[in-house]
Design a protein around this nucleic acid. Structure first.
Lengths: 208, 208, 208, 208
DNA sequence: AATGAATGAGAATTCATTCAT
DNA sequence: GATGAATGAATTCTCATTCAT
């Protein structure tokens, strides 16, 4: 291994370390999702990640920090990839709302990030930092995006002029509820995401 | 004291026992709500109820049964008070929906039963019995009521004819989400139940 | 109920009390035999005796005293009924040994007193008083009787002249061992008490 | 250190682990012998072994398994050292019986294995596995050996022809009883093993 | 006297965290 | 860095004993 290469790119050791951190984060999500924070055992996370128990503590100082670190690590990539707030005058509000809802349903509800949402709900009271992080980085951003779109739609007559606040809440609430439902009640009554997605749009769309 | 009187009213001891069971149920709700099932300590429940640790086990066989027993005990009074399904032809669908939403928001969301809803969501995967109990006794009943009202509204032209299924889900989902929100994110952004209630109706109402 | 009757015989109350004490003793033997001292619950003894838990404490001060009281209560009647030490010159030593062994095998090994023997062995180290009581009242008496018979047998030529001490021990040991065996290993290899009884005699009897 | 060496001898860590397991087994025998299974505290076993409470659970899953594991671990060395069943025609039955009794009295009764025998008797009903293990590996083997010797003795005229079954039982019973006695009643009346040993032989030997 | 509800000390077991190898 | 053995605080649950009714 040449010095040059080490300078140019992260050393192999750095890469391995990063890979192990990712494995730990994935394992943590899996285990916490399965049994919740309190019932999760560091041992299980370690085993799921294919490392030993002690190794977990080389990457995270405590179980709490493992949990918080996992949530943030899982959320950040998505946040960076969210469609921007740029208002494109060539795109109708309906299309933009559709795009955002699809993004949310695809990236959040239909992936392992749905688990995170439930974890935030469950453990939120015990992890105020996390609740705030989630609110600030996920929910309020989502609200802002949807609000902007709804405003655009109302201004150009696409949407009926209801309380923007309420509408936005309705859309966000629907998303939250669907996430919960899928994890707790889906075996009693499976939910149809596509139908839900249509409803979300229909709630906002001006009746023609 | 005559035999008749003894039959009519339980002995003082029975009454005290029942009172203690209620105190334990209340304490359990408080503690479980505060920290979730796994992090709750039987000792704390006992202290909150003003009894000793051992007494908890006189009334419930285990922490699990305390949890399940508490949820069911807290749910039953509400179930018995739910407005019936009787269709009153003199009442518009709009009014009936309004009545039901008000009942739900008042009885479920704006009391300590909201805590129960969150507990079901959080702990549901670990308590399949409870999830089923909640689905059967609360959610599916609520859905049935709302569905019936929406159908009535669609038939008499009050509501636009969307997929009833989706609409119903939307209303229920909103309720669930509001319940979650109030407990986890309300301090970041308080929710206005009245506005929400209007939205619920508006989602269904035919545009005039 | 007349005053006279009460004076002449124990009052009905006294009789009831004595009956209840007996029921408790029987229940205690049953429960202690089943699971040993430490694992026995006062509640189970009470239930087996058909009384409430508190009542046990009206008759015995503690679990330890219940145990000791039960052992003594179960042993004393037998001790009083044991064939005396009187040497009857008209009876051969062989017959007297036979009579005593039969008494022991019948009264101790083939009744619920066998359980007591095992309890003494199991719990003896934790109940020095009981071990001494059992040694003094049961074992040493039995040894004395058998020794006397063996001496008689040796003197009149019925038995061979082995170490009397050893012979006596052998007889007693056999009895102890049979008691153990029947409770622990009988289901693997049932023991034939009659054969054993013959062996006991044969060990002592002079070969003719 | 070469690969070969590593294969030949376990790593230091392995050795230490094995040493600790042995220490735990010894400690468990000491504590269980002292107070019996139910009254024994894991804490005491840990302290006696010089480790912490949690460590006990690294080696044994539960108190029950600690008990069973200890009994088996203590038994195995003895089982492997038992004199074989090979019939040596040059040795008289008397000598062979002597040899076996000496082995039994030495290896079983006069060491800490005597404690195990009492534990089996005491706790056998609660540990059917152990009772069976003890019967199969110790008692039935001992019986088989003694039976074979007695048969040899009867055939060549050394022993009188009593029921071999009964004789064997007598010898085994004596051994069991001596074991019990030494632990429970020895302080009231010490037993003389040598005398007992003579009796065992004398019981079998033909009168000359 | 009898009951059985209440107590709380005590014991088994778990598991986050540390640290010698 | 990585491991996994060791620790011991914390928690659930039990049950002998007490005492108001």
């Amino acid at each position: 291994m040449s010095e040059v290469a080490e300078v140019a790119s992260p050393s192999r050791r750095e890469q391995q370390k990063e890979a192990k951190r990712l494995a730990l984060v994935d394992a943590a999500l899996a285990v916490f999702s399965r049994v919740g924070f309190a019932a999760a055992k560091i041992d299980d996370v370690a085993e799921e990640a294919g490392v030993s128990k002690g190794t977990v503590y080389l990457y995270f100082d405590s179980k709490e920090q493992l949990f918080e670190g996992m949530v943030k690590a899982k959320m950040l990539p998505m946040l960076n990839n969210a469609p921007g707030l740029v208002i494109d005058p060539d795109q109708s509000a309906t299309d933009r709302l559709k795009q955002h809802l699809r993004f949310f349903y695809t990236k959040v509800l239909d992936s392992d990030r749905r688990q995170i949402m439930r974890l935030i709900m469950s453990e939120g009271p015990n992890f105020p930092d996390l609740a705030e992080f989630y609110y600030t980085n996920v929910l309020s951003r989502g609200q802002a995006m949807i609000n902007a779109i709804i405003q655009q739609g109302i201004e150009n007559g696409e949407f009926r002029n209801m309380s923007g606040h309420g509408l936005m809440h309705n859309v966000v609430a629907g998303a939250l509820a669907v996430g919960m439902w899928k994890q707790v009640f889906d075996r009693f009554q499976p939910i149809d995401l596509d139908a839900y997605y249509e409803i979300g749009r229909a709630s906002c769309r001006e009746r023609v």
